[in-house]
Every structure is written in C-alpha cells, then in structure tokens.
Computed example of a mutant assay.
Amino acid sequence: MKLIIGNKAYSSWSLRGWLACRQSGLAFEEVVVPLYDEAWDKRREGDEFAPSSGKVPILWDGEAVVWDSLAIVDYLADKVGRARFWPEDEAARAMARSMAAEMHSSFAALRRKHGMNVRQIYAPGPIDDDVAADLTRIFELWAQARARFGGAGEGDFLFGAFGAADIMFAPVCTRIVTYSLPAPRFAAAYIGAVLRHPFLQDWIAGAQEEEWVIEKFEQPVA
C-alpha cells in the first residue's frame, strides 16, 4: 500500500488517513507532498491524484484507491477486521460510528479559524461564538462516550481502546493544544492520552523535522 499525504505540520485529514494506516498494522509506503509549493498545481494533476481531484490523503492498494479519511478507515477495517477500529459492543459501535461521521462533516468554524499546526503553541485568545459552540458539542460527545463506554476496555480513549473515533478527533486534540483553547478537566485528560499515543508522537516528530513553512497557516506567537 502507498499513502500520499500533505505536510505533517498542517494537514489534519492526512493525519487521520495516516493514523488509520498505522492502526491497521499493515505495511505501507508513506509519501509526503508539500502542499501549495511551486509544483503543487502540476503535481495534483498527475495520475496518482486523479481519483481524488488532487486532494490528500489518498491510499493506493494495488489497483484499489481510496481518497477520503473515513473511507480509508472503513477500507482498512474490511482488510484487517473491524475490531482494530470499532468497539465490539453494538451500542458502543453505533455511537463511535456516529461520532466519527459527525466529526467528518461538522465543526467548520473550528477547522476554519483554528487550522492544524502541530509545531506551535499560541497564547490563549478570544474565541468566536461559533467556535465555542463547536467545542461545546465536541466535549458533549466526548463526555457521553467516556461515561457510557470509556470503561469498557483498557485505555483512556473514547471507547476504552484507541480506535476510529479517536483517529477522527485526533486533529481536534492538536488544535486545542496549539491555540490554548479552554477544555474541561476530563477533556484535557483525554487530549493528553491522544497526544501521548505512540502514533501521534511519531507524527509530531515527523512534523518537527519538516522544513516547509506555509505562512497562511502560521500566526505570530503571542
């Protein structure tokens, strides 16, 4: 398998696809392409990007191609068994799938106004109402999952063990830390568990080694 991703410092959807590949336990080749550099427009017109219209991440597995983070999760779960990604309990699995799908389609204000940048930590600042609403909903989801199913297995993640729901929310965890956004105590504990996970540690280390800087994703450190 070959996974094409964007800059590790900034590409939240790439992080999700990459975490899914790591979670699968399958071997894969990682290809990082710098977003928005001089060759970006030409590169995304190539055959490897054609199925996704130039978007990352995109996973090639022989002739099979998958170009959406949640679809990559499901594709890999089909290959290795859903137990690696989804809770065994039916009610827990239903909630985990719903949360993953809501993360996939929602929270536009948080994404737009607080882009992922795992190399920075900014001082706290004002929070727009729409961002605050997104955070409130996210914390409600996390609280429900932890209260109902977090004790169902070993681990400090949403449904006990690290899985697909945690993969989908991992970039949110990095954003909360990067922008010093307020979080209740239980959420801070969960964020810490996610960021300490070996997969996240590897991703962040890779981001620190990147030389590329995209100015529109940077802001002065206060």
Results as ranks from 00 to 15, higher is better:
Met1Arg: 09
Met1Lys: 10
Met1Ser: 09
Ile4Glu: 04
Ile4Ser: 09
Tyr10Ile: 00
Tyr10Thr: 00
Ser12Ala: 09
Trp13Thr: 06
Ser14Met: 06
Leu15Asp: 10
Leu15His: 13
Arg16Asn: 05
Arg22Asp: 09
Gly25Gln: 01
Gly25Lys: 02
Phe28Arg: 05
Phe28Glu: 08
Glu30Asn: 07
Val33Thr: 14
Tyr36Thr: 07
Arg44Ala: 09
Asp47Gln: 15
Asp47Leu: 15
Pro51Leu: 02
Ser52Glu: 01
Ser52Met: 07
Val56Ala: 00
Gly62Phe: 04
Val65Gly: 06
Trp67Pro: 08
Ser69Lys: 06
Leu70Met: 11
Asp74Pro: 09
Tyr75Phe: 12
Leu76Arg: 07
Leu76Thr: 00
Leu76Val: 00
Lys79Asn: 05
Val80Trp: 11
Arg82Trp: 14
Arg84Tyr: 09
Pro87Glu: 04
Asp89Phe: 03
Asp89Trp: 04
Glu90Thr: 14
Met95Cys: 11
Ala96Met: 06
Ser98Leu: 15
Met99Cys: 11
Ala100Val: 01
His104Glu: 04
His104Arg: 09
Phe107Glu: 06
Ala108Thr: 14
Arg111Met: 05
Arg112Ala: 15
Gly115Ala: 15
Val118Leu: 10
Tyr122Asn: 06
Asp129Met: 11
Val131Glu: 05
Ala132Arg: 12
Asp134Leu: 00
Leu135Cys: 03
Arg137Gln: 12
Leu141Tyr: 11
Trp142His: 07
Gln144Phe: 09
Arg148Trp: 08
Gly151Arg: 05
Gly151Cys: 04
Ala152Gln: 15
Glu154Ser: 13
Ala170Thr: 02
Pro171Gly: 03
Thr174Ile: 13
Ser180Phe: 05
Ala183Glu: 08
Ala183Asp: 03
Arg185Pro: 13
Phe186Trp: 09
Ala188Phe: 05
Ala188Pro: 09
Ala189Cys: 10
Tyr190Asp: 06
Gly192Ser: 14
His197Asn: 08
Pro198Trp: 07
Leu200Tyr: 08
Ile204Asn: 06
Gln208Thr: 12
Ile214Val: 14
Phe217Gly: 04
Gln219Ile: 13
Ala222Gln: 14
